[in-house]
Simulated scan of single mutants.
Amino acid sequence: MASQPPRWGERTLVMGVLNLTPDSFSDGGRYLDLEPAVAQAVRMSREGAHVLDLGGQSTRPGASEVGAAEEAARVLPVLRALLEGRLPAKRPLLSIDTFRAAVAEAALQAGADWINDVSGGRRDPALLQVVAAAGCPLVLMHSRGDSRSMDGLAVYTDVVAEVRQELLRATDAALAAGVRADQLIWDPGLGFAKTTEHNLSLLRGLAALRQEGFPLLLGPSRKRFIGAVLDEPRPRARLWGTAAVCAQAISAGADVLRVHDVGPIVQTARMVDAIVRAEP
């Protein structure tokens, strides 16, 4: 059985990234085959992941898009294997990282628990109706354009205010499609149509986003802006920068951290929770 749905505010949840793609920016191809993917899911579960996020479509800047059939072919066999007993009895929640309604629907029918949409419902609005029918959590992430165009759309006058307004519009669309407000989780989309300074400004302004009342998910893991600050070109060498961002995000009210390095970030979150939450 899956872990119970979170009671927001009690502790920080850690979401482990499982990229089932050949071209993701830091681990593309490592988990393209079934057995390595399942082994990594088991490893992250043992390290304390509360949620596992399975993705079959790379969303890094410049990535090529595959069709729904190929995306589903990458994700569904791994999802089914994990649901058939490969994880511990009290398994993490299983999230599907997709912006396609057809993939979301197939995954939910197979037993997935969450949908994580990097487009916030923009790319395929029918996904909102699928989530409404399922009644599952939905992550609305802020982004602009797609993988090919987003870098050219990183233009803001006030990035915190504009991300807030665009997430509110995405929320209105979700509610109009029948999604309940208590299903929604906000993600400001670090690295998506944002420069390094935009990302840093968002991190300074997280409290303003949290005030809207939605649980907040952050995905800083190994991102390009951390490499820029640290002068570190190797994504896998950006763990400590990622941990620093995660600590600040928890202090500002983040509820979920989406990361590749689950074990160290679980420890980071537990320590920061002990300091900043009333009842760790």
Score class of each variant (00 low, 15 high):
Ala208Lys: 12
Ala161Lys: 13
Leu217Met: 11
Lys194Cys: 02
Gly191Asn: 00
Val163Ile: 07
Arg222Ala: 04
Gly178Met: 13
Lys194His: 09
Glu166Pro: 08
Gly205Pro: 10
Leu200Phe: 15
Val159Asp: 15
Pro188Asn: 07
Leu202Glu: 12
Gln183Trp: 08
Gln165Trp: 01
Glu212Tyr: 01
Pro233Trp: 11
Gln183Leu: 10
Ala170Asn: 04
Phe225Trp: 06
Gln211Cys: 03
Ser201Trp: 05
Thr157Ile: 00
Glu166Arg: 14
Ala208Pro: 07
Leu203Ala: 05
Val160His: 11
Ser149Thr: 15
Ala176Glu: 15
Leu168Ala: 13
Arg224Val: 00
Leu203His: 09
Gly189Tyr: 11
Leu206Met: 10
Arg164Phe: 01
Val163Thr: 09
Phe225Tyr: 10
Arg222Phe: 03
Asp231Gln: 15
Arg164Met: 01
Ala228Lys: 03
Val159Gly: 14
Gln211Val: 08
Lys194Gln: 13
Ser221Arg: 04
Gly213Asp: 07
Arg224Leu: 04
Trp186Asp: 09
Ile185Pro: 10
Phe214Tyr: 15
Ile185Ser: 08
Gly227Ile: 00
Lys194Glu: 05
Ala208His: 14
Phe192Asp: 15
Thr195Asn: 09
Asp187Asn: 13
Met150Cys: 00
Leu153Ala: 02
Val159His: 14
Pro220Glu: 03
Pro220Trp: 03
Leu190Asp: 04
Thr196Gly: 00
Ala170Pro: 05
Leu190Lys: 05
Asp182Leu: 06
Pro188Trp: 06
Leu230Gln: 11
Asp151Trp: 01
Arg169Thr: 01
Val160Ala: 10
Glu232Arg: 12
Leu175His: 04
Val179Gly: 09
Leu218Asp: 09
Leu153Ile: 04
Ile185Ala: 06
Glu162Ser: 09
Phe214Ser: 09
Glu166Thr: 10
His198Phe: 07
Gly178Ala: 14
Val155Asp: 14
Val179Glu: 02
Ile226Gly: 02
Val179Arg: 05
Arg169Gly: 01
Leu206Thr: 14
Pro233Thr: 12
Lys194Asp: 09
Thr195Gln: 08
Ala176Lys: 11
Arg204Cys: 10
Lys194Pro: 08
Arg204Asn: 12
Pro215Thr: 10
Gly227Glu: 04
Ala161Asn: 12
Leu175Gly: 02
Leu153Tyr: 03
Phe225Pro: 00
Leu218Arg: 09
Phe214Arg: 11
Asp182Gly: 03
Leu209Ser: 02
Pro220Lys: 01
Arg164Ser: 11
Pro233Arg: 11
Leu206Ser: 12
Pro188Ile: 00
Phe192Pro: 13
Arg164Val: 00
Leu206Val: 13
Leu217Ser: 04
Glu197Leu: 14
Gly205His: 10
Ala193Phe: 07
Leu167Ala: 04
Gln183Tyr: 08
Tyr156Thr: 11
Ala207Met: 03
Arg210Thr: 14
Gly178Thr: 13
Lys223Pro: 04
Glu197Trp: 12
Val160Gln: 14
Ala177Thr: 12
Asp231Tyr: 07
Ser149Glu: 07
Leu200Pro: 11
Phe214Glu: 07
Gln211Tyr: 02
Val179Trp: 00
Arg180Tyr: 10
Pro220Val: 04
Ala173Asp: 15
Gly213Asn: 07
Glu162Cys: 07
Ile226Pro: 01
Asp182Arg: 06
Leu216His: 06
Ala161Gln: 15
Ile185Lys: 08
Thr195Val: 10
Ala176Arg: 12
Glu232Ser: 12
Val155Tyr: 02
Arg148Lys: 13
Leu167Cys: 02
Gly213Met: 07
